[in-house]
C-alpha cells in the first residue's frame, strides 16, 4: 500500500486551503471526491489540521493519510494537500506559488483583512494555480498576469498615460449613459 509507486497521473493536488488564525476557513478547495466528500468532514479535517500546525511552523505534516505542506503569515495559514505517496517537493512548489502570487496580488501585505478585501482576485488566483487537482501553473508571476489585476487598483502614479485616458473615457461614457 504505502510502498507502491504512484500511478503516473497529473492529478497531484488533493486540496488547497486558506485558514485564519482561529482556524476558520477563508477559502478551501478539495479536488478529490474520495477525500472528504462532505463539508462536515472537510471542516473537521481543517480543525484537526489547524490544531496540529498552528503552534509549530514546521512546513510539513502527515494527517489522515494526506501529506500537507503549509506556511503561515501574520494571521493566515496556507495549506496544500496531496496523497501520502506524492512527491513532497511538488506540493511544496504549489504552496510557494500560492503564497507568492497572493503576496504579489496584495503587494506583500499578506493579512486576513487584505485577502478579504481582494477575495475575488484571490479566488481567481487559486483557480489559475490548480484546476480540479491538476497543477495549471506553478509560477507566481505568470499566475498574477493571468488573473489580471484591475488597472484602477494600481496607484495612479504607476499607470501609463494611455491607461489613465482609457479609464477616464470609460467613466465619462457611463456617467453620460446614466
Amino acid at each position: 500500500m504505502d510502498d507502491q509507486l504512484l500511478e503516473p497521473s497529473l492529478y497531484t493536488v488533493k486540496g488547497m486551503v486558506i485558514l485564519d488564525n482561529d482556524g476558520n476557513r477563508i477559502l478551501a478547495k478539495y479536488y478529490d471526491k474520495n477525500v472528504f466528500p462532505t463539508s462536515k468532514e472537510q471542516k473537521a479535517f481543517e480543525k484537526n489540521l489547524f490544531n496540529k500546525t498552528h503552534r509549530a511552523n514546521t512546513e510539513i505534516i502527515m494527517l489522515d493519510g494526506l501529506t500537507c505542506v503549509y506556511k503561515s503569515n501574520v494571521d493566515l495559514f496556507f495549506y496544500v494537500m496531496g496523497s501520502s505517496r506524492e512527491n513532497e517537493l511538488i506540493l511544496m512548489s504549489v504552496l510557494n506559488c500560492l503564497y507568492d502570487s497572493i503576496s504579489q496580488i496584495l503587494r506583500k501585505n499578506v493579512e486576513k483583512r487584505a485577502v478579504l478585501d481582494s477575495l475575488d482576485i484571490v479566488m481567481l488566483a487559486m483557480d489559475e494555480i490548480c484546476d480540479n487537482g491538476i497543477i495549471l501553473d506553478a509560477d507566481a508571476s505568470s499566475v498574477v498576469t493571468r488573473v489580471a489585476l484591475r488597472t484602477d487598483d494600481i496607484p495612479l502614479g504607476e499607470q501609463t498615460v494611455a491607461q489613465v485616458i482609457q479609464s477616464a473615457k470609460e467613466q465619462l461614457k457611463w456617467s453620460l449613459l446614466k
Binding site: 476557513r25 477559502l27 478551501a28 478547495k29 463539508s39 462536515k40 477575495l119 475575488d120 479566488m123 457611463w174
Partner: peptide
C-alpha cells in the same frame, strides 16, 4: 442595465464565498 461591474463582482464574490463555506 447597464451592468455595474464593481457592485456585481462584489455580490458574485459573496455567493462564491458562501458556497465555499459549505453552504448548500
Amino acid at each position: 442595465t447597464p451592468v455595474n461591474p464593481r457592485k456585481c463582482a462584489h455580490i458574485l464574490t459573496k455567493i462564491l464565498y458562501l458556497i465555499n463555506q459549505g453552504e448548500q
